[in-house]
Nucleic acid binder design. Structure first.
Lengths: 198, 198
DNA sequence: TCACAAACCGACAGGCTTGACTGTTTGTTT
DNA sequence: AAACAAACAGTCAAGCCTGTCGGTTTGTGA
């Protein structure tokens, strides 16, 4: 009487790994990199410590895997947000969308990893190339949404500046979340950007 | 034969505290908040563990003191850098000065505290008001250096955007220090800002 | 069906960190 | 000079974190 449901090993394994990576990111958001211990992760994921160590022998293995998982999530969320922007690609809407993304939980998790990576070579090696990739994609997406012409001198730099601006706003939002202030700044920058791009 | 130099208690105490706070900031820069242990700080400061615990009973006491110490250092460095900017207050020079500050060691230390404070209420309580104060001063200084007229609508927001931009650039510099990229972006921003402010 | 391998489990040891505690030196006050 | 208080020194215990290890269960291939 095999009333027990048979689940293939591969699928079980994949589900387990995903749960652990997701829990890792949740921990990063809620207790920061410093507070993210392996025991906390396993508790949060509902995974025994043994199973955890089976899939990710060291903490570094887990964190590195979480980095790449987070990269995928960030990419997906950005693409989804971009698709939700009205097709008339109004500058203001695009900037607000970017501003929202750079104040979201996924950004917070990325920020924790970013700062931790500065003084952790192994982590840096995992973070740097992926961050570069996300950066490029975000840039390309922004250019497209704004309908900017990168062959015009200075336009490329203005788009880069826009992305660094929202990064800075996101950082500021971590200690004092002032949404109104952020939107005022972004709206003004939208006006200035529109003038500069035309 | 009192050949030994007599040093007042108060001065000794002050020197000790300063050395500990300075060492704390150095540790933040070099090994990050996570790697900054009390033992490491006392070793680096050349202070015995007993003396350390005498002046700062808990780690939190020490870190909070270091926050306020760092705030003073940041203010002083900014003021000095501002004074070094040519009096013709050219926008480009001002922006480069800001960009340099937001890529300096003191910024890195502040960044570590900033991110740590997000998930540490006690630390946040110490960081938030001081950061607010530094932010206001920096804003005021920038307005003055740029010769901007804040009574004109939008100007205040553009100055804020400029400061958030350099913050974002500083954050980006922590994992991939690309000075040329930063300067290109800042130079373009200077041109755009000049147009918008006139 | 049987043997094997992968997945899973919980206990344990080693290392590190923090702060409490006792004792010693040095400056101050009367 | 003597008594007192502050500064300074080093040791110790408790707690947490990481990764190792032997043992168990579950799926897979012969």
């Amino acid at each position: 009487m095999p009333s027990t449901v048979r689940v293939p090993q591969e699928e079980r394994s994949r589900a387990m790994r995903t749960r652990l990576m997701a829990a890792t990111i949740e921990c990063l958001v809620e207790v920061g990199f410093g507070g993210t211990s392996t025991t906390l992760i396993s508790e949060r994921a509902g995974v025994s410590r043994g199973a955890q160590l089976h899939h990710f022998p060291t903490k570094n293995d887990l964190v590195v895997a979480a980095v790449s998982h987070l990269t995928e999530v960030r990419g997906a969320e950005l693409a989804a947000a971009a698709a939700a922007v009205p097709p008339a690609h109004r500058t203001r809407d695009v900037l607000r969308m970017l501003g929202d993304h750079f104040a979201s939980p996924v950004f917070l998790a990325a920020l924790e990893l970013w700062v931790a990576a500065r003084t952790d070579p192994a982590l840096l090696a995992a973070v740097e190339p992926l961050e570069r990739k996300v950066g490029r994609e975000t840039h390309r997406m922004t250019v497209e949404l704004l309908g900017a012409d990168e062959s015009t001198p200075g336009v490329r730099e203005l788009v880069q500046a826009t992305l660094d601006l929202v990064r800075g706003l996101g950082l500021a939002a971590t200690i004092s979340d002032d949404t109104r202030r952020r939107n005022r700044i972004l709206d003004q920058w939208a006006r200035t950007l529109d003038e500069a791009l035309s």
